[in-house]
Design a protein around this nucleic acid. Structure first.
Lengths: 138, 138
DNA sequence: CAGCATCCATGACGATACTG
DNA sequence: CAGTATCGTCATGGATGCTG
């Protein structure tokens, strides 16, 4: 890992990130980017948050909580979360069907991370919005 | 803010996130989601990280560091970062042109957040990959 | 109820060519 | 050098209809 000029490690802990981003290669070859990309689509965060506050939810309950999501996208989102080990999908074989979704321990630890990011965003959004205003005035 | 059932605040601090996600509305009306969406596209993280370790970079230097990015996307990405107040763009009126990009204080505080997420990802990616393997075997 | 299958619109992104 | 402009492609996601 090298920098263009001489200053290599002035930023301390930032280096840790840089290492995991393995010199800025796009998604493949970089597991960190891989994971981040999985949770940064249009609905995943909302699904995780909803499950985080409810412990356990049925498909239709989730659909109600995540305002605006289509049935298709809820299914897709939940399957991806299940695939990555963030949620469990429990099917009760009865008619009509009953399927319950819940966070895994891994999913819960992810919620904590999202919380942190979310708090940062809420603390700094004012400044971001001001910056956008300034930018509009060229 | 209301929950479907009776259990409202069992999760403590998670509520803080939930509040900022304002009952799970998509992007508009939710500043947190708004900000998160801005940094979670294909290239933004890479640009921020690169600037985070270099203090100051020219356009072409950035292009070299962010492997695979096109000229167009680098421009678009940097404009958005500038618009949101995460980077500064300094033009030196000379021929050939010289433009330098650097993180603002706001941008630096964002790097710290990305670091945290990145560290979480690197610590847990093993488990995610294992989960994917299990999922493949149905 | 909890999906799956299909079609379609939109926008993100890449490739290429041109310029002050 | 640091862009802008244009075009083509592809993935994301919405709408709709069908089903065990």
């Amino acid at each position: 890992m090298k920098v263009t000029n001489g200053e290599t490690a002035q930023l301390g802990t930032i280096e840790k990130v840089v290492n995991h981003f393995s010199d800025n290669r796009p998604t493949k070859d970089c597991p960190v980017t891989d994971v981040l990309c999985r949770i940064s689509d249009k609905w995943t965060m909302h699904a995780i948050i909803s499950l985080g506050k409810a412990e356990k939810l049925r498909f239709t309950e989730l659909k109600k909580k995540i305002e605006g999501i289509s049935q298709r996208m809820l299914t897709v989102t939940l399957r991806t979360l299940e695939e990555d080990g963030f949620v469990t999908r429990t099917i009760y074989p009865q008619i009509p069907p009953r399927v319950e979704y819940a966070l895994t321990p891994l999913g819960r630890s992810l919620v904590a991370q999202i919380m942190s990011l979310s708090n940062w965003a809420s603390e700094n959004m004012e400044e971001v919005f001001k910056a956008r205003e300034r930018f509009k005035l060229n």
